[in-house]
């Protein structure tokens, strides 16, 4: 596999919820145009970690962060505008969360708040985003129907389309398939495969098979610490740490 330039460089990251330390001394590098999977048992800090990358943790009171998170070499906690950051780094959540608007309005929401008003431009963006999220065929005839009328899998792909409409650079996915049925899950996985060509993807997953299927690199979190980080194949078939091996083989988690 050829070397890709680094997208994120995280150094000595500590995160506290009040007195409770959720991330300890996390240091890792995320490469561009790869799928990076974050795995680990519940409460290990993988969701907390992914939320530091687009500063979603800012929404929670009493959060304290130390260390550096560099996105393309810029410290996102010091030298980056949070709105600009989130525009560049989109996020798909665990539970599909389309807004209570029409399908069209859901997709057009992002571009609109970033100042795009031209109707034809918006129309194009909506169509392209839906196509990129493999949803266009299913919804092109009911764009102005409520988004909440879609099935769970369709809603999640709509959420992905919504992120793509803002034309991000990185897409963060926080357990995007945990609320979906197997068929919807496999469609999302296929989609991730497609998206990898254009975007850098970081995905948190509970599902080890999924991590194995979709990711190029994998980080194994345990109690807020990155135990092991490397190529997915190596993590899955030849882990260095005994804890990683124990987790992969299903002995805990």
């Amino acid at each position: 596999m050829e070397e890709q330039p680094s997208k994120f460089r995280i150094k000595d990251l500590d995160l506290f919820y009040g007195d409770n330390q959720a991330l300890k001394d996390v240091t890792l590098e995320v490469r561009s145009h790869r799928v990076t999977a974050l795995i680990g048992p519940s409460g290990c800090g993988k969701s907390t970690f992914i939320r530091t990358l687009n500063r979603m943790n800012d929404l929670i009171d009493h959060v304290r962060i130390t260390g550096d998170v560099l996105y393309e070499g810029v410290n996102i906690y010091a030298d980056y505008d949070v709105i600009e950051l989130r525009k560049r780094i989109g996020m798909v959540f665990q539970k599909p969360n389309p807004f209570p608007m029409s399908i069209y309005e859901n997709i057009a929401y992002g571009p609109k708040i970033h100042g795009i008003t031209s109707k034809s431009l918006l129309d194009d963006l909506v169509e392209n985003s839906l196509k990129a999220a493999a949803l266009w065929e299913e919804v092109s005839d009911r764009l102005h129907k409520p988004a909440l009328g879609l099935s769970g899998g369709q809603q999640q792909r709509l959420c992905i389309a919504r992120v793509l409409a803002v034309e991000p650079d990185v897409v963060l996915m926080d357990e995007p398939t945990s609320a979906l049925d197997p068929i919807s899950t496999s469609r999302i996985e296929e989609l991730i495969f497609e998206l990898k060509k254009k975007y850098t993807i970081i995905i948190v997953t509970h599902n080890m098979q999924q991590a194995g299927r979709v990711s190029d690199t994998t980080a194994f979190f345990l109690n807020g610490v990155v135990v092991e980080y490397g190529d997915t194949e190596k993590i899955f078939f030849n882990p260095e740490d005994s804890r990683t091996e124990a987790y992969i083989s299903g002995r805990f988690g």
Binding site: L59, R86, F99, P100, Y109, G110, I113, C159, R162, V166
Partner: peptide, 10 residues
């Protein structure tokens, strides 16, 4: 809903 919107850079 709030998270979804904020994550889009709103």
């Amino acid at each position: 809903y709030r998270e979804g919107s904020l994550a889009l850079g709103a």
